[in-house]
């Protein structure tokens, strides 16, 4: 994709063509060869000159209330760009002579007469206009009261898909916090944020001592479980945050290593716990989150 873009990049192509033209001009002047950097610089100057000329002429046309530029605009632009060098008659600000009799134009005519005609080395393919994009307007969709220039409505399938996605998002989005007890220490907590597969009930379970370790009956010492419970409970639907401080750093690392492999089992364990009545859990809490 990238290489294709660089190949078909119009500005690079234009630069390459300009470079050939510039090289031809240099050759006609009498140079036999050129440094690459010098030629590139001269090419850049040529392109900038062209664009400056065009911009100046376009601005001049716009200031006289026209969209199309004419000869006078071009001559004005030429004089503007030639004012660095100076030209005969530049003093004549009040234009006692007509603009069309400008010395710059006369110089150009002389140049055309004197200099041999050197056509470009190769015929340049004219860029074909891009294929017209078929825009389905609102009229095409069969709705007559909406103006024609407005874009069409999105297709019905797209809307449907988006709606269902939104539902999934609403029901499935959540933070899964899995506590894990390792040697008595609650070490890992896994946060999973994102779209989950669609299911009927989503349960969030957080807490100290609710993990797999508790099922095994290992309740350890040396844990500082800071139960902040400052979660935002909007209508009892979402609980967001719970932080557990851990004293033992070594245990944490160990737990992190095991964490990945333990995820499926842990979930199973959690389900077991969820099924159990909440009264059994001493330091945790359980929230049922039924889908609407």
């Amino acid at each position: 994709m990238n290489s294709q873009e660089s190949e078909t990049d119009p500005s690079k192509f234009a630069f390459a063509v300009t470079r050939i033209a510039t090289a031809q001009i240099c050759q006609s002047v009498g140079f036999t060869s050129a440094q690459r950097s010098a030629l590139n610089t001269l090419t850049d100057v040529a392109a900038r000159y062209l664009r400056a000329l065009a911009e100046s002429a376009a601005a001049s046309a716009a200031s006289s209330g026209r969209t199309q530029s004419n000869l006078c605009d071009v001559v004005r632009a030429l004089e503007d760009l030639g004012s660095v060098q100076g030209f005969r008659g530049a003093w004549d600000v009040r234009r006692t002579r007509t603009l069309l009799a400008s010395p710059t134009l006369v110089n150009l005519a002389k140049f055309v007469e004197c200099v041999d005609e050197i056509p470009f080395a190769k015929p340049v393919p004219r860029c074909c206009p891009p294929p017209e994009k078929r825009v389905t307007t609102s009229r095409a969709a069969g709705v007559s009261h909406i103006p024609n220039w407005l874009p069409a409505f999105p297709r019905r399938e797209i809307i449907n898909v988006k709606e269902t996605e939104g539902e999934v998002e609403r029901s499935g989005f959540g933070i899964e916090l899995c506590g894990k007890v390792d040697g008595g220490c609650l070490v890992g907590e896994k946060m999973k944020v994102g779209l989950l597969e669609k299911r009927d009930r989503v349960r969030f379970k957080m807490g100290f001592g609710v993990g797999r370790g508790r099922v095994k009956g290992e309740v350890g010492e040396g844990i500082v479980g800071v139960d902040l419970r400052n979660g935002v409970c909007r209508g009892g639907k979402r609980v967001s945050c719970q932080v557990y401080g851990n004293v033992d750093g070594k245990d944490t690392e160990d737990g992190k290593k095991r964490k990945k492999s333990d995820v499926p089992r842990k979930r199973r364990g959690m389900k077991k716990n969820v099924v159990a009545p909440p009264g059994n859990q001493d330091n945790g809490f359980l929230i049922d989150h039924p889908t609407r």
Partner: peptide
């Protein structure tokens, strides 16, 4: 415009 640019270059 082309001639003018050519002259400049």
């Amino acid at each position: 415009v082309a001639v003018a640019t050519q002259k400049f270059i």
